[in-house]
Structure formats: structure tokens, C-alpha cells
Design a protein around this nucleic acid. Structure first.
Length: 486
RNA sequence: GCGUCGAUGGUCUAGAGGCAUGACUUAGGCCUUCCAAGCCUAAAGCCCGGGUUCAAAUCCCGGUCGACGCACCA
């Protein structure tokens, strides 16, 4: 027995199993047989994801960036301009003998030989990675068929570019400025795989920083991040995708920019910010690296791109954030296609700003976070599984228990529980089974504190707070509980 | 998309033509003064569709989903 069976029981699958079992994640449409590439977040998963998104918002709003929200349904014309329609649509060929499909490439084209069986290849239409839809009701065969054609956005960035003029005016015609957006994006992947790693519907959190080209090398806050050490894999040494964890150069951001490994201060600054954010979330830093794209893997809009990659125990290296220098590609494209002036007046005359874009895959970060937080240890004869989530990320802040299943203890515990909920601290109540079992349940879902009401509580109005990571207990007056949990 | 392998209660699994196994879990109860203890009771399952057969969870065909490899991942 191989593959699915044995890997199912392997230690590295425990995170995914826990996530499924305890209400973090589930396959979408499961009762109808499911569809690959779609996942639903359960009660705890949605709570954790929301907290990650809120941390991200706060992080970038501290930079002074405003958040906007644009549509997911986008007319065809936008993607004609952005280049997505063309670069997302791949011509394919099929083998006349074995019927295998191939994306057209140098050795794979009409009339060439099938690499699998040697049969002749013939044209097999086009595959498009964008989900197509329609706006309104098209008239059959009329011009409006094309006019009403639309796609679900494959990235949220375009929505920000389309708003550029309004955003510039909002910023009183001054550069630089940054705009953020969190939202769903859609890509009809040919083969989605690996739970949250390659989804067809996923959440992107994107930052677009608009900056005058001549300012790219002088970020006003650069010194604040210059000493931050990063593990860098520049394109020059980046010949093999599956590089080992040891294959990187550790350099400070300042050093990397000075020596030209990172092209400019703006790019360097935002790479450093990505690192800072991921570290703040609790992603294991020893498993992070920044890898520069080679020319042949760069997106059609990018002039430079660095991916933050996380080394998953389960799936190997995976991209969790991309930081791209999109140059003036997008604004130029929309300016000429829509016949709109996208330039900014500066003392040096009219310019088209460049765009630095950190683009976060929230679902992948969610997965990396679970893997980073998960550990198992032996306590007595039993295993203890723990999600060591940061307090501010844990879906449940604390759980309240009566020590024993007795009316007077339950009553007091209910009261403590209700008071905390009234104080907007999200707590859970649990009175079933032994106290040890209840502690373990909370460990597994990452609840940082457990509060236990015992007979002494009825005398002295003090409770025991037990801490998840150390399992240590302290006795505190009920009046101080709120402060400790906050 | 192609190929290989697989799918049994919520989870992990036994069974390979004839009553679906066990553990964990969950729920109710007893016991219990702090880390998955014990006892009693209960709940819960053969991925979907077709075929072969007296009889299919088991064999065959198709599909779906999953793991892995190839391709793809702008």
C-alpha cells in the first residue's frame, strides 16, 4: 500500500487532519462530490482568516495606505488592456493518436510529433485560465456579445489601476501613495492541488504603491528597515526551483540594495515589510526565503519580482507573497486602451508612476501559519497537540470551565463566561468530560487561556488561569481576568 | 490535462463476493478538587452512477475527489 494510504497516516498530514476535524477547513460542495480547487473555511478557520486579514489591514494602514474595494466581475476590455486575456489564453495541441493535450511550445505545435507516443499533433483550441461570464443578457449574434463579455478577476490589482485618477485626486495629486485591497480572485487552474496551495477561488491581499520613477531609489523610511536580515536567492544563482533551505545568501536589505541584488530602495523596503509582517504573524522565520524570479518565469507585467517562499513540511517550497516591480506597465496599458490620461504632474513635468506591488496569498499564508503553529509533545502517557497561535490570532481567546460537573460551580462558571462575552472577549464554555480533556481540546484549536472555576472561587472570587504553551497555572481575582486576557 | 495509486462512521482503520471490525471522537449519566483516567448507555460508515451475480463495500466499466509524477501555475 502506497501513496494516499501511507501518506494519510504520516506525521506531516496531522496539520491538515486537525484543520478538517476541528472546524478550520473543509472541501467545498462535499455533499455533491466536491470540485477540485475550492475550500470552505469553517467556524474556526473563518475566525483565524479574518484575524490575519485584519492584522494585514492594520499593518499597511500604519504605512498610511488606504483600503479600497473593487469588483470581482470585470469587463473583457480591461483584460484586453492589461494583457491578461492574451497571456492567460494558451493555444493547445492534441495528439491524434493518444489524445494527450499539450500547451503549444517550440517542439509542441501543429504537425510536430507527440512526445508520449509519436503521433501527429493537431490544433485543439485554446485554454483560458480566467472564468468567463456575461454582463446582462447578450443578443444572439450581435455586437453586444463581445460587449457583454466579462471575466472574474484573476488578481485584485486591476481594480486599483482602474481607479488611479480618482485615487490620485484623493491624494491631492501627490506621489508617492499606496492603496490596499483584500478580495477574492479566481483562476481556473488546469490542475488545482494541495489543499489551500492552488485554489481556483482564493483571497488576495494586494498593495499597490505608486511612485515617481526617479524616486524609486530614495524611500524616506528606508533606514528603518535597512538592517533587517533576509535570506535571498537572486535570479543569478536561481537555476533550480527546488533549491535546498541552505541555498541562500543572508544579507541585510541595505546591503542587498547597495550591491544591486535588489534593484531599488522601494522594492527593498517592501520586501522587508513583507518579512516583518510574516514574522509578526508567527510564520516560522527559519523556513522563509525570498527568491527572485528568473526572466523566463516573470509575469508579463513585471520588470522584477521577488517571492516570499515558505518551506512546508508537507508540500516543499511554496510562494506565499510576491513582490513585483510592475514598472509603468499597467498605467500605460490602461492609458492608451481607454484613452485616459494617467500621468501625474510633477516639478519634472508629466510622468507615469511606477508600481511596486506586494501581493499576499492569504490562503497560503493561512496554511503556512497552521504549519508554523502546530506542534506535538508527550505529556505523561498522552500526546498533546497544540496550535501555538499568537493570542491576537486565536479564534477563541479563552475557555471557561467549571472544575467539576456540579451545579454551584457550573453556575459560577456561566456567570464568568457571560461577563467576558459581554466585555466583547470571545470565550467558550465547556463543562463536559474531565478537566484534562477540556484543556487538550482547547490546546488543539489554539485557545491561549483556560479559566477554571473551583470551590475556592465561591469563597474568594479568584479563578485559575491556565496558559496553553507552558501549561502553567496562576490564581487571579475574577476582577483582573479581563485585563489579563485583553 | 495525461499517467500511477487510492477512497469504509466526524477521525484513524479491519474486512477482498454472503450479519461491516475495532479504536478514538461525540452525546447523556455515574464517579472525579486541575492536564485526553475509569464505569454505564447511546449516536454515527462502505464516494457517485451503471454493469456482472441468487447475492457487490468487495469483481467490471464510467465519473468525482485525493496523493504522487509529467505538464501548468501569467
Amino acid at each position: 500500500m502506497t501513496d494516499a494510504r501511507s501518506s494519510k497516516g504520516a506525521p506531516k498530514d496531522e496539520v491538515a487532519e486537525l484543520a478538517r476535524r476541528r472546524g478550520y477547513l473543509g472541501q467545498a460542495f462535499e455533499i455533491y462530490g466536491a470540485a477540485a480547487g475550492f475550500y470552505d473555511y469553517g467556524p474556526l478557520g473563518a475566525g483565524l482568516k479574518r484575524r490575519v486579514e485584519n492584522q494585514w489591514r492594520d499593518f499597511y494602514m500604519r504605512e498610511g495606505f488606504y483600503e479600497i474595494e473593487t469588483t470581482s466581475v470585470v469587463p473583457r476590455s480591461v483584460f484586453e488592456a492589461s494583457g491578461h486575456l492574451e497571456s492567460f489564453t494558451d493555444p493547445t495541441v492534441a495528439c491524434t493518436r493518444c489524445k494527450n493535450f499539450f500547451r503549444v511550445a517550440e517542439d509542441l505545435d501543429v504537425g510536430k510529433r507527440c512526445p508520449d507516443c509519436g503521433g501527429v499533433l493537431e490544433a485543439a483550441g485554446e485554454i483560458n485560465l480566467m472564468f468567463q461570464t456575461r454582463i446582462g443578457v447578450p443578443k444572439a449574434g450581435s455586437e453586444e456579445n463581445t460587449k457583454s463579455e466579462a471575466y472574474l478577476r484573476p488578481e485584485t490589482a486591476q481594480g486599483i489601476f482602474l481607479n488611479f485618477q480618482r485615487l490620485l485626486r484623493f491624494n491631492r495629486d501627490k506621489l508617492p501613495f499606496g492603496i490596499i485591497q483584500i478580495g477574492k480572485a479566481y483562476r481556473n487552474e488546469i490542475s488545482p492541488r494541495q489543499s489551500l496551495i492552488r485554489l481556483r477561488e482564493f483571497t488576495l491581499a494586494e498593495v499597490e504603491v505608486f511612485v515617481a520613477p526617479r524616486e524609486k531609489n530614495s524611500h524616506p523610511e528606508f533606514e528603518a528597515v535597512a538592517d533587517r536580515k533576509l535570506r535571498l536567492v537572486p535570479a543569478s544563482s536561481n537555476t533550480n526551483y527546488e533549491l535546498g533551505i541552505e541555498n541562500y545568501e543572508e544579507k541585510s536589505v541595505g546591503e542587498a540594495v547597495r550591491s544591486g541584488i535588489i534593484a531599488n530602495e522601494y522594492l527593498g523596503y517592501h520586501i522587508a515589510k513583507v518579512d516583518e509582517f510574516l514574522e509578526g504573524l508567527g510564520i516560522t522565520r527559519a523556513k522563509l526565503r525570498f527568491r527572485q524570479h528568473r526572466r523566463d518565469e516573470m509575469a508579463h507585467y513585471a520588470t522584477d519580482c521577488w517571492d516570499a517562499e515558505f518551506l512546508s513540511d508537507r508540500y516543499g517550497w511554496m510562494e506565499i507573497v510576491g513582490v513585483a516591480d510592475r514598472g509603468d506597465y499597467d498605467l500605460n496599458a490602461h492609458a492608451s486602451s481607454s484613452n485616459t490620461d494617467m500621468s501625474v504632474r510633477t516639478e519634472q513635468g508629466k510622468i507615469i508612476p511606477h508600481v511596486i506591488e506586494p501581493s499576499y496569498g492569504i490562503d497560503r499564508i493561512f496554511y503556512a501559519l497552521l504549519e508554523s503553529a502546530y506542534y506535538k509533545e508527550q505529556v505523561g502517557k498522552e500526546n498533546r497537540q497544540v496550535l501555538k497561535l499568537k493570542i491576537e490570532l486565536a479564534p477563541i481567546r479563552a475557555a471557561v470551565f467549571p472544575l467539576l460537573n456540579k451545579a454551584e460551580l457550573k453556575e459560577k462558571a456561566r456567570e464568568v463566561f457571560q461577563n467576558l462575552r459581554d466585555a466583547s472577549i470571545f470565550v467558550e464554555y465547556d463543562g463536559s468530560g474531565s478537566i484534562g480533556r477540556r484543556y487538550r481540546r482547547q490546546d488543539e484549536i489554539g485557545t491561549p487561556y483556560c479559566i477554571t472555576i473551583d470551590y475556592e472561587t465561591l469563597e474568594d472570587d479568584a479563578v485559575t488561569i491556565r496558559e496553553r504553551d507552558t501549561m502553567k497555572q496562576v490564581r487571579v481575582p475574577i476582577a483582573e481576568v479581563e485585563k489579563i486576557l485583553a
